[in-house]
Write a protein that binds this DNA or RNA. Structure first.
Lengths: 188, 188
DNA sequence: GTTTATATTGAACAGTGTTCAGTAACTTGC
DNA sequence: GCAAGTTACTGAACACTGTTCAATATAAAC
């Protein structure tokens, strides 16, 4: 049962992180012998990739409801907020999706989930421009910049690099830092 | 000779990445027995941390010369540019410094190198504010936002997540994305 | 009931970080 | 010069890692 293995892997990966989880850990979790995992999956990386996909579907489902927001700038703002919220609520998924090297080996093949997520942001940016906002800016570069800012906030959070702002909690930093960013986008 | 070990470790770590480098790899590189490394260093993490420090000194030296730039906003812009340039030219150091979990375990003790780097940005932001710029924004949140944007650009680069912008090269994306960001800061 | 397909095992291989008794090579004191 | 002491270094061993594979058990088909 591949589902049983994935359930075990999810539990172990999201508890200890990818690098610190072993095939034997997963096998023990579901009372399997380590060899059995290789009957259903090519290697550790393939199990990883299934959870990587799972994370993206979660993220994309979260942001799909925001397509209803008509005003493109409001939609852009909501997308960013949802993105950060996803990272906070699913820190371990976020790590798997964006900060584990393993992902790079599988990125090319098949459906491009990261590209789909970026596509949503890009579409909102473009709609903003057609409405008169960000007139003098290149769509791709602006999109990349926005994605970078969002990812930066989440990556600092995921790798525990927020302790240098002693005056504020991590949650406050992320929320208020994002508000700052939005404020700047509004004025640009 | 700790220097000999660090030279070997630097060469191996920066070639294969931290997780994919073994103590035996390092020992082989300098014709030592694996056990010898433990005579000079407590564990793999301690070797890592020495190179982590090395990376920060490199980064801080790069940006120290920018203290001469009198205008605070120009200084801020130059700092960001130098930061991105550092990541491009020292991708593996950047990974070690900001994207390897190991670092978290050593973060607390002694001199806070990351805090020093952030302090420079913060000082420039504050000077900008005293000059009338970013008047209505909180210094810490704005600093965090700027650091996030810079880190986001570099983290996407380091983890090879720039392939979704097929139209442009990675270098172009980083440079132009940063220009976009600067443009927005200018108008805020 | 026998054959065939599917599941599952656990030992084995080469690799990992780490420890440690043993040895070699210098330094010091006389 | 020679013994004592310190420092440097070795390589085997331990428990772990991902992965493979012959052997075995379970289920399905005829």
């Amino acid at each position: 049962m591949t589902k049983r293995i994935l359930d075990g892997a999810r539990s172990v990966f999201l508890k200890n992180g990818y690098e610190r989880s072993s095939m034997r850990n997963i096998a023990d979790e579901i009372n399997y012998s380590p060899g059995t995992l290789y009957f259903y999956f090519k290697d550790k990386g393939e199990i990883f990739h299934k959870l990587y996909e799972e994370g993206f579907r979660l993220l994309l489902n979260n942001s799909k409801v925001l397509d209803n927001v008509e005003d493109p700038f409001e939609r852009l703002k909501a997308n960013g907020k949802a993105y950060i919220q996803f990272a906070v609520e699913n820190r371990d998924y976020y790590n798997l999706m964006f900060l584990v090297d393993e992902a790079a080996d599988y990125k090319k093949e098949g459906l491009n989930l990261a590209g789909e997520a970026i596509g949503q942001i890009r579409a909102a940016v473009k709609a903003c421009q057609e409405q008169g906002r960000f007139k003098d800016m290149n769509t791709d570069f602006l999109t990349f910049m926005i994605v970078s800012a969002l990812h930066g906030i989440c990556a600092l959070f995921c790798k525990d690099r927020t302790k240098n702002f002693v005056e504020h909690t991590t949650e406050e930093l992320m929320a208020q830092g994002y508000q700052c960013f939005i404020l700047m986008l509004e004025r640009a």
